[in-house]
Design a protein around this nucleic acid. Structure first.
Length: 418
DNA sequence: TCTGGGGTCCTAGGACCC
DNA sequence: TCTGGGGTCCTAGGACCC
């Protein structure tokens, strides 16, 4: 039996979160910045209309934004994560199964509700999310995820649709009519490289792509290109399905340069602590990690160096200090004096549920009482307990000047009403 | 040393996504 | 001067084996 998917996507999510708590941003062009206030990563509709580009560095856009009286905010990820949880829990209440795809997107499995008027029901879902969280969303409904994404795209652009586009009730002919008006580069899964190839062959619309020779696609764009084509033809490949997490990355650019081992190790200690925290929160542990460091590749005058290394830990763990020990072991091997380091990161993989590999001589789940305490204290008073080495980091990460308060996740920053 | 096909495993890098 | 961070999956090619 064929499935029916809904794709819920929050409109301009980070900006919408800021607007929930600061209504004066409504109707004003607003952008949200990346870490270190480097790039623009979210734009309100008004900012998009002005031509502000995704990923544009702030220093290039600053004058333009000032001229148009745009509002600028640093990113506040704990606020966005919290708002995301609220949106997802509303969805969970209204649909038997949801698959969270990213911080601002989720697939709904609407198969068991297919005898209802799904256009109507999707509108109810949209309204409930807005009523309960203040976040506007759009919903695309279709028999494949790729088409649901296209439906979502149309629902966002065409205001007369009231935020919902239902392609499940359409015939193949009607769908083809729509695909003829979708530029091929707007199709989910067709990126920059493929687009260049396709354009040079005269493929311009999603419909052109759908009718392209299958074996050419298979050889030039691999299995995923083929799946995109199938899904445009209403054949479900359950594409973009992700179940449990396979890796975890913590990385940052610095607000200045780091030129000494100790300071770099301090930054990596902060990353190790944060990675351990995430693993413990999710009840998982990992056995491998890799460390990487790099200089600033935008600055041609600096000597360039980058390197990374993978380290195997003795056993699966989620202890921040064991992770840090592994990270330092790796860092010692790749660190070189005489460079201006700009960015570093760690990634953790081979992730398994906690206690998955109980040693032959252990008969209970390993608990690290130290980190249980550390976590519970830090949940209340954010960042108050650190690993010793974190003190070497000298605040070279996360320089945020324009950040909004943690309205929902910190008792001291609750919204006050006068 | 050459001849030759066939298989697995691993890794780096490519491509794409939000 | 100032240029994000966090993910997944696939593929080609090398190393090694029979």
């Amino acid at each position: 039996m064929s499935k029916v998917y809904g794709l819920v996507d929050c409109n301009n999510f980070f900006v919408s979160c800021e607007r929930v708590f600061d209504p004066k941003l409504r109707n004003i062009p607003t952008v949200v910045l990346s870490n270190n206030d480097g790039c623009i990563v979210a734009r309100s509709q008004e900012a998009k209309a002005l031509g502000v580009k995704m990923g544009e560095p702030l220093f290039k856009a600053k004058d333009f934004l000032n001229k148009h009286n745009a509002e600028v905010r640093s990113s506040n990820y704990s606020l966005y994560a919290d708002m995301s949880r609220r949106v997802m829990s509303v969805l969970e209440e209204m649909v038997p199964e949801i698959e969270i795809y990213s911080i601002d997107e989720a697939f709904l499995d609407l198969t068991s509700l297919r005898y209802r008027d799904l256009t109507m029901y999707a509108k109810q879902i949209k309204d409930s999310v807005y009523r309960c969280t203040g976040i506007p969303v759009s919903i695309g409904v279709a028999k494949t995820k790729t088409l649901a994404k296209i439906g979502n795209h149309i629902a966002k652009k065409n205001l007369t649709l009231n935020g919902v586009m239902d392609m499940n009730i359409m015939s193949v002919k009607q769908i083809d009519g729509i695909l003829k008006n979708i530029p091929v580069e707007d199709v989910w899964g067709i990126g920059f490289r493929s687009y260049n190839k396709l354009r040079s062959m005269g493929v311009e619309s999603a419909y052109n792509f759908k009718t392209l020779n299958e074996s050419w696609i298979r050889s030039q764009m691999g299995i995923n290109g083929w799946k995109v084509q199938q899904e445009l033809g209403n054949l479900d490949c359950n594409f973009h399905h992700n179940d449990i997490r396979k890796s975890l990355v913590v990385s940052r650019s610095f607000s200045g340069y780091i030129e000494h081992f100790n300071e770099l190790s301090g930054v990596l200690a902060r990353f190790s602590h944060s990675a351990g925290e995430s693993l413990r929160e999710e009840g998982v542990e990992a056995k491998y990690l890799s460390v990487y460091i790099r200089t600033n590749y935008y600055n041609q005058n600096h000597k360039q160096y980058m390197n990374s290394i993978t380290v195997e830990l003795e056993e699966h763990t989620n202890s921040s200090s064991v992770i840090l020990a592994g990270v330092l072991q790796g860092l010692k091997k790749i660190y070189k004096d005489g460079f201006k380091y700009r960015k570093a990161g760690i990634s953790i993989f081979d992730i398994k549920p906690e206690g998955y590999q109980l040693g032959m001589f252990t008969n209970a789940r390993k608990l690290d009482p130290v980190f249980e305490v550390v976590d519970s204290v830090n949940r209340k008073w954010k960042g108050s307990i650190k690993l010793g080495r974190e003190l070497f980091s000298q605040n070279k990460i996360s320089a945020k000047e324009l950040v909004s308060p943690n309205y929902t996740s910190s008792w001291t920053e609750l919204l006050s009403v006068h």
